[in-house]
Simulated scan of single mutants.
Amino acid sequence: MPAYLDHAATTPLRASALAAMTEQLQVTGNASSLHTAGRRARRVVEESREQLARALGARPSEVVFTSGGTESDNLAVAGTFAARREADPARVRIVASGIEHHAVLDCVEHLVTHEGAKVTWVEPDELGVVSAEAVRAAISDDPGSVALVTVMWANNEVGTVQPVAEIAAVAHEHGIPVHTDAVQAVGHVPVDFAASGVDLMTVTAHKLGGPVGVGALVARRDAVLTPLTFGGGQERQVRSGTLDTPAIRAFAVAAQEAVAELDAEARRLVALRDRLIEGALDLGYGITVGGAWQPGDATGRLPGNVHLLVPGCEGDSLLYLLDAAGVECSTGSACQAGVPRPSHVLLAMGLSAERARGALRLTLGHTSTDADVDAVLAAIPTAVERARRASGWAG
């Protein structure tokens, strides 16, 4: 069996989620129907909504089910921008971090190109941290023009956890709503929607052991959103579409389980993560760590995130060589895999294009073991040497 170290892209379905989904797949019912089968499906959806809300520190009425993280990000960013600009035409500016996932970045760029939006990018420090003071400075240029602030909870490439509550407090001084993409955070670090102070939060099932194709936008009841899709208005009139009852049930079960075991699992993954990082550094080759890392720390960096910078190598070459050796990993965001250009995250952190090209992301999850770490450490030397020969690196 290959050693799977790409849990940040997607993690295996939990047995409990599979059982819950399989059970519901055998039952017919549209949650919008008024007959007995429809009411039964609606009950499953609403019980799942309550279960998911408890896991996220939210009210059930704040959970809007979607098809996943990308839809939730788009609804939060584009929907808020449209609603805010309609209420006040001066609200044309979006303040966004330069390390967002492309589900946010590309949505912002679309709004700039097609909807007259302006954007102020807030860059991180060299460890990938977007400070509240940097956000404050971006807002202060013209607070009355800002429609929305969006900063992810934890970065999908280097694993840096952001000071989301501090950022929300700064934005709220000016009455500006805040969105955070918490796709990588939920089930891996403590996430409490109410305590964070954010107005909108993106989550998805398949990063925490649920199925692909279902997610949620957690939106405060006073959050104003313009719908992006139109039809039945099933979810608070902001998201239309027949609800996927089996997937929603599995999502809630997976989220509850992931949150319940978070503390113990974080300690386990930190031990594996640190052994992998320290082992890779001990191999030599000039390998360094991308992002914030302190051995034993589960708060500043995601517990399962290992990001290595290998000089003299192309990340894609390393990926394919490791894959051939039975190690499955990534060079960064799965949505950008195969695109021969340096990561925008690493460039925003101040790395040179040359250094950023040698990036390798290895992410651990609920099925990871010491054997996976052993497999990576055994495969890296040959992969690095072959990748350097292919690149003609002189050292």
Rank of each mutant, 00 (worst) to 15 (best):
G79D: 12
A375R: 15
G159T: 07
G98W: 14
G332L: 10
E115L: 13
D244N: 15
R236H: 13
Y320G: 01
G159C: 06
A17F: 06
V189H: 02
V212C: 04
A132S: 14
L127M: 07
H7Y: 14
T22P: 02
E62K: 11
R221I: 05
G332Y: 14
A19V: 05
S330Y: 04
G358S: 09
E173T: 08
D199T: 00
E235I: 02
P143D: 01
D370Y: 09
R136Q: 14
D274R: 08
I94W: 00
D199I: 06
Q26P: 00
G57F: 12
P342M: 12
L111A: 02
A337C: 10
A324P: 04
E328M: 12
A96C: 15
H206P: 04
S391V: 07
M201Q: 01
A195K: 14
P311L: 02
P342L: 12
S240P: 11
G209A: 10
A216W: 00
E115H: 14
A298K: 07
R49A: 06
T36H: 08
H172N: 11
T10V: 10
A82C: 05
L75Y: 09
A280K: 01
H174L: 05
A185H: 04
G144S: 13
A356I: 09
V129W: 00
T22N: 10
L25Q: 14
D106T: 08
V135K: 11
N30Q: 07
P295T: 09
V104K: 06
D297M: 06
